[in-house]
């Protein structure tokens, strides 16, 4: 049983006009075998939260804490956080020209597992995982994310989730830009990870449609840089009905697609 605990987290970015605070005291605790949906309108700070947990250099934690089983995550480098068991599926996965997907996956697996996977097992493992996500084996020899469509990038994020098998997965708008088939395939991948047991999920989304595929245990509404309401799955239904208007005062912000 693992616990990811976020306490009174304040995060800022440096802009030309000086430091600007984006998160104003986020509190959230996720345990193994729990799926938390973080829902909120654009610009509410959802992605900032995910980047801050992963350690993106652009975001500065000004106060508060993030701990993983009591260990101070904020003291760790980006790669140490990943090796400690945190995984961020990115909204915009980065292209790395000249580095093949297969080389990247093996290097990452070696780093996270602490030893190079045995080649024969590894090849089989990657092949099965790619197959389950409907990824053409030819992608293994292509440069990381280079020229991939939005859907292909997201499938590869979930491929990495499967192979790296972290304690906690933060999925940052993994559903955005996916067509119906891709959404199903990606959701099935996330559900396999969830059913493996011992895994916690933070599912960040703007829309409710992915929650039809991945059922959350808890739903949190994120607005203005913090959690403004928490509840069970029924809160998502309410958002689908009413949108974010109650939290933003903006009638145009609908939670449904």
């Amino acid at each position: 049983m693992s616990t990811l605990e976020i306490k009174d987290l304040h995060v800022a970015v440096n802009t030309d006009e000086g430091q600007k605070e984006l998160l104003h005291g986020v509190n959230l605790t996720i345990k193994s075998d729990e799926t938390h949906a973080i829902m909120g309108p654009n610009g509410s700070g959802k992605s900032t939260l995910s980047y801050a947990i992963a350690g993106h250099p652009k975001y500065e934690v000004t106060s508060g804490s993030v701990t993983l089983d009591g260990e101070d995550v904020l003291e760790m480098s980006v790669d140490e956080r990943a090796r400690a068991g945190l995984f961020l599926a990115m909204q915009y996965p980065v292209e790395v020209p000249g580095v093949s997907m297969s080389n990247f996956l093996r290097t990452a697996a070696t780093a996270v597992r602490g030893e190079a996977p045995k080649l024969r097992h590894w090849v089989k493992e990657v092949k099965e995982s790619m197959g389950a996500l409907d990824i053409d084996p030819a992608f293994a020899e292509r440069s990381v994310n280079e020229g991939f469509s939005g859907g292909e990038k997201k499938r590869h994020e979930i491929l990495q989730l499967d192979l790296l098998n972290p304690k906690f997965a933060i999925l940052d708008e993994t559903d955005s830009g996916l067509d119906v088939d891709a959404l199903r395939v990606v959701s099935e991948g996330v559900n396999r990870y969830r059913e493996d047991g011992g895994h916690g999920i933070m599912l960040i989304t703007h829309y409710t449609r992915i929650l039809k595929h991945i059922k959350p245990d808890f739903v949190h509404v994120f607005a203005g840089g913090k959690v403004v309401e928490s509840g069970g799955p029924e809160l998502a239904d309410k958002l689908e009905e009413e949108g974010y208007v109650a939290y933003t005062g903006n009638k145009k912000e609908a939670a449904t697609v």
Binding site: A82, F87, P93, F104, T107, Q160
Partner: peptide, 8 residues
């Protein structure tokens, strides 16, 4: 950042 976020 991307590569390090994968543990590298």
């Amino acid at each position: 950042f991307y590569l390090q976020a994968r543990g590298i």
